[in-house]
Amino acid sequence: MKLAVAIASKEAMPNAFVVFRGVKESIIKAHALGYDGVELALKNPNEVDKHGLKQWLRDNQLEVSAISSGQVFAARGLHFTDENKENRAELYKTFCEFIDLAGEFGGLVNIGRTRGPIAGRDITLVENLFLDMAHKVADHAEKRGVDLILEPVNRYEIDFINNLDECSEMLRKVNRKNFVMMPDVFHMNIEDDKIGASFIRNKEYVRYVHFADTNRHAPGDGHMHWDEIFEALTSIGYDGWTTAEILPYPDPDTAAQRTVAFLKGTYGKYYH
């Protein structure tokens, strides 16, 4: 496995789930701390200077693990289940641009809360809206060799696709090879019956994993059952990215240091 940390530009919203801000500075810090990569949390693709990004990654021997779209929902209010045609067109354009960026960096684009809510509407309508957009962006992603990773998110943040079983059910309806799953153990701790069993049960779709402890702090700072998690990931043959998407508590540097110390220390045999 490889370890990444979530970062954003300096213009990111204050409530963005990232550890470091400022792309160049974050990449330098991530390398110094022992991370293998960075996840880019963006609200617009033009927040990143592609030429600079290539150079900073090369200089620090890092990769982009994925591009995260949470701020597209949080900052811009765009989502897959919106019924407004203009909003849907803007979302599609943004996702195509994210996909183009991922074609050069990382090859993965996250769909978290950007999938949108049910919000009291008929579930068939909501699913059809989601599937319509899912198929359109999957078509564009296929041309660029990019995978889209759908993230189950807990009920307190959104009311649609909350656990891994629901996510697998939706992915079967999408039925595209480049549309897969991004479990986050923080959300799983709230929504899934057993974290290890849920990983195993839904293993065919697991493509990328977010790590945080039960309190959304650095792994090791809560009461998450990490042995169960690593045993399950090993049993399904998972060898991809595990990315820290955590609160920067008590401060960004300390949170990032604790994450590396715990994961690459206590569980170092799983990382290479």
Results as ranks from 00 to 15, higher is better:
Val23Thr: 13
Ile111Lys: 00
Asn189Arg: 08
Glu166Thr: 11
Ile236His: 05
Gly34Pro: 11
Gly22Trp: 06
Asn154Cys: 11
Val206Met: 03
Gly22Phe: 05
Val174Glu: 00
Asn15Trp: 14
Val18Met: 12
Thr243Arg: 02
Ser69Phe: 10
Lys177Gln: 05
Glu191Lys: 01
Phe179Ile: 00
Leu164Thr: 11
Thr94Arg: 05
Phe105Lys: 01
Gln55His: 11
Gln61Cys: 06
Leu3Asn: 05
Gln257Trp: 06
Met13Gly: 10
Val260Met: 05
Thr81Tyr: 13
His210Asn: 11
Ile158Glu: 07
Ser235Trp: 04
Val209Ala: 06
Asp159Lys: 06
Ala102Leu: 06
Pro250Phe: 06
Ala256Trp: 04
Tyr92Asn: 13
Leu53Met: 10
Lys177Tyr: 00
Glu25Ser: 14
Asn189Gly: 12
Leu57Thr: 09
Tyr92Gln: 12
Ser26Leu: 09
Leu53Cys: 09
Val146Cys: 04
Val206Ala: 03
Lys50Thr: 12
Pro252Leu: 04
Phe230Val: 03
Lys54Arg: 15
Phe105Ile: 01
Met224Pro: 01
Val72Gln: 11
Leu108Trp: 01
Thr234Gln: 15
Glu104Asn: 09
Arg76Phe: 13
Tyr35His: 05
Glu63Asn: 03
Gly220Leu: 06
Ile236Gln: 08
Glu104Leu: 13
Ile28Ser: 07
Met133Asn: 12
Ala244Tyr: 03
Leu164Ser: 13
Glu231Thr: 08
Met13Ser: 14
Ala89Phe: 04
Leu108Lys: 14
Asp82Leu: 12
His140Phe: 14
Val260Thr: 09
Asp193Lys: 12
Arg121Gln: 15
Val260Phe: 11
Leu129Arg: 15
His51Gln: 14
Asn46Gln: 09
Thr242His: 06
Met1Gly: 10
Gly120Gln: 07
Asp100Thr: 14
Pro152Cys: 13
Arg113Cys: 08
Lys93Gly: 00
Asn60Ser: 06
Val5Gln: 03
Val72Ala: 12
Ala8Phe: 08
Glu228Trp: 00
Ala134Trp: 01
Glu231Ser: 12
Phe80Lys: 02
Leu150Asp: 08
Asp139Ser: 02
Gly240Ser: 07
Glu97Asn: 10
Leu150Val: 07
Asn15Glu: 14
Lys29Asn: 07
Asn175Pro: 00
Ile27Glu: 05
Ala12Val: 01
Ser235Gln: 12
Phe105Thr: 00
Ala138Met: 02
Leu62Val: 01
Gly77Val: 04
Cys167Ser: 15
Thr242Met: 15
